[in-house]
Design a protein around this nucleic acid. Structure first.
Lengths: 229, 229
DNA sequence: AATTTAATGTGTAATTTATACACACTATCT
DNA sequence: AGATAGTGTGTATAAATTACACATTAAATT
């Protein structure tokens, strides 16, 4: 379709801030760039939106291409529209963030030519990133911490079956503060969307903890009123 | 600067959802379009982002051009990136919302050629809007209601000096529910950012209420810790 | 001057929610 | 059998939220 509106040459991209949780630490997915500008720099995975795909779709596609993951809850958090973000011209980028399960054996092979590798990096002591990606990351992290307090996003980071201690460690890592064990458990269980399994933790050299599962259906039922309209 | 990145013809615009409060009702600023597509339709004020301005700047500029207002707290809330939003080609738009004081005598003369007039319309019983503007509006309204609960945005809608009853009526109009007078006042005053003035309401035929003022400096002081990092 | 009108301004008790805090239990390992 | 290491649980206190009603005031009316 021919474009009849006044416009100027511009590029439209998305950048993803993908969080994972591993070894008790919150991590973010970075790539090593293989192209100018910022060749060899570390950056957030991001790419240009295609002509015939929605921005949301582009975000899902790029996440898939970089991680092989589908059906991840991915959310827009901010659009970065400063004039000089990109040294080669006007690039406006929509920031998305997602939380995913780091599967020990999961390959992180970039399928895009412009990245040399993709890897998890702890969110603390983050290196300098290409473009304004440090700023983008910070904004996503802040949003994510806020969201953790009122949406069940933590479960996206954990294995399907988890113990309450694992859940608490995750909250502590993200919020960066210690929580009281009894109060934490009381509150989590009071929501009613955690399903206690018959199963127990295996392979630990101490008393095995009960495993729980996040029950999305119950969650939806409980919170449908509040989220409605 | 020449653009060396792969790209396609696209347009980048912003749309504003501008809320006001008048006669006890929440209103939104609409324009009547004077250009195709959707000529003669009602729409949200919006326009194309300039080449050498940031998206945030474009939003401020467009708001100014449409309302003559400056220094308004204007905030991005979502980017709309569906492929077929616009019948003439790919247009990605960033939605902004703002809350402003409706000044009885304030002129709403569009300075852009593409609008015939601009006017306030109650948010309830909103007419069908051009493009996907109904969806954009709904999203802004929802966000605004959410924000009202944890940010002092209500004061942008009221005159500088206001009574607690006026403040409460505003909350009731936005949240669409009745609030308890005593509890509302207790809570508002407990925050400590409302400054009681010596002055009283004038020109009413009943006991005049005390006037209050929102003290931005106190607010910033009180909440600097929570917002930090 | 007295009365009516219409909205302001205020307190307390009951309930719910959040916080602080410590130890017995259990599975595994030696 | 005992040591180890982490699990699982309850209660008392403080803080925040909710429910609820009437005397006060300024102007307008008689």
């Amino acid at each position: 379709m021919e474009l009849k509106l006044p416009h100027f040459d511009s590029v439209f991209s998305i950048d993803c801030v993908i969080f994972g949780f591993e070894a008790g630490e919150l991590k973010v997915l970075l790539i090593e760039r293989n192209e100018d500008p910022f060749k060899d720099w570390l950056a957030l995975p991001g790419y240009i939106v295609g002509q015939d795909e929605s921005v949301d779709h582009a975000a899902e596609r790029i996440l898939y291409e970089l991680t092989g993951l589908r059906d991840v809850s991915i959310r827009q958090f901010h659009t970065f529209g400063e004039v000089n973000r990109h040294p080669q011209g006007r690039v406006i980028t929509v920031g998305y963030f997602a939380l995913i399960r780091i599967n020990g054996q999961k390959e992180l092979e970039p399928v895009t030519h412009f990245a040399r590798k993709a890897f998890w990096h702890p969110v603390n002591e983050l290196p300098t990133l290409a473009f304004d990606h440090t700023e983008i990351f910070k904004r996503a992290y802040k949003k994510m911490r806020t969201k953790l307090n009122y949406e069940p996003i933590a479960f996206d980071l954990l294995p399907e079956k988890f113990t309450l201690t694992q859940l608490q460690l995750l909250y502590e890592a993200v919020l960066n503060k210690k929580l009281d064990k009894r109060n934490f458990r009381k509150k989590m269980l009071s929501y009613g969307f955690l399903k206690e399994l018959a199963e127990k933790q295996k392979g630990v050299s101490y008393r095995a903890a009960k495993l729980y599962k996040f029950d999305r259906r119950k969650y939806a039922k409980i919170f449908q009123n509040e989220l409605g309209s």
